[in-house]
């Protein structure tokens, strides 16, 4: 699903606080089938932006098209959009509310008019996506699961809607390494299915591992948008947005400083290990 913003702006207005321009004339194209990471300091507009993508917020000015839907048009079919763009908030497990995991997972699809056996099939496949078994866990209360399991059930609730585009706000915060790796794997699998995935994170190691493209926001403006290599090797942008380099890139820099001729665009630990294993005194140059 292609997403096109043209001079997109949004201002929060409150009787208790001065107007706050959260998005300031953003122009961008999110290509379908990509994994996009949105990064930037707190208050740079990341969450405000993704809330536009499924119509929770409407553009203050400028234009936004998500697939065929023009969000600027007051008659835009928001329901159509919400069926296709799944938005997972921070700590989505706080939104679980049903007596059983099964009831929580079918809540969305049932509202979409899915019924009977289809409903059960949806729940089973959504839970399978997140590595859980409907037969085993379906009748459990979601509140008695571990933190990592709850997060995965909450993700399954969104996946059961079978969205074309999956959007996640800080998907791995609070999860341990093992649980976080499961969520990462899920994002990759979902993407391999031809779907668009967009996520927000402050964890540059996660962004480096997951994102193909990166959008950098700073004070509501689009500072830079490009491939992860373009962004992470652009010192000006990294500095301006106070972003930390991924640790693997930091390590490659350290190796370079010691005289090893290694590439800098190494974004996963596996690749970094391969580089280090391949080093020998000869590659000192």
């Amino acid at each position: 699903m292609k997403i096109v913003g043209e001079n997109l702006s949004y201002t929060y207005r409150s009787p208790y606080a001065p107007d706050h321009r959260a998005l300031d004339r953003l122009s961008f194209v999110v290509r379908p089938g990509r994994i996009l990471g949105i990064v930037g300091p707190s208050g740079s507009g990341k969450t405000t932006l993704i809330q536009h993508f499924n119509g929770l917020l409407r553009p203050g000015s400028g234009r936004l098209r998500v697939g065929p839907v023009d969000l600027t048009d007051p008659r835009a079919d928001i329901n159509w959009l919400r069926r296709r763009v799944g938005l997972v908030f921070q700590f989505p497990e706080f939104q679980l509310f049903e007596e059983t995991v099964y009831k929580d997972v079918i809540f969305g699809p049932r509202n979409l008019g899915v019924s009977g056996e289809d409903l059960e099939a949806r729940a089973a496949s959504a839970l399978e996506w997140v590595g859980l078994d409907l037969q085993k866990i379906g009748n459990h209360s979601p509140f008695h699961l571990s933190g990592g399991e709850k997060r995965r059930v909450a993700l399954a609730c969104i996946l059961a809607m079978q969205p074309q585009c999956l959007i996640l706000d800080e998907p791995t915060v609070g999860l341990d390494r093992y649980a976080a790796q499961r969520v990462e794997k899920l994002v990759f699998q979902y993407h391999r299915n031809g779907k668009t995935v967009i996520f927000i994170s402050h964890d540059m190691d996660l962004v480096a591992r997951l994102a193909q493209d990166i959008m950098v926001l700073h004070k509501g403006r689009l500072l830079q948008y490009g491939s992860r290599t373009d962004i992470f090797l652009d010192e000006t942008v990294m500095k301006k947005a106070s972003l930390r380099l991924p640790r693997t890139v930091q390590y490659m820099r350290k190796l370079r400083a010691r005289g090893y001729a290694v590439p800098l665009n190494i974004f996963t630990l596996e690749k970094a290990r391969r580089i280090v294993r391949g080093l020998n005194p000869v590659s000192r140059g």
Binding site: R177, D205, A272
Partner: peptide
Amino acid sequence: MGLGLPVEVELDRLLGSTM
């Protein structure tokens, strides 16, 4: 136990055993 090492510690160790 599902815990990791600091990236730098892990790669330093590997570097030490490679060299």
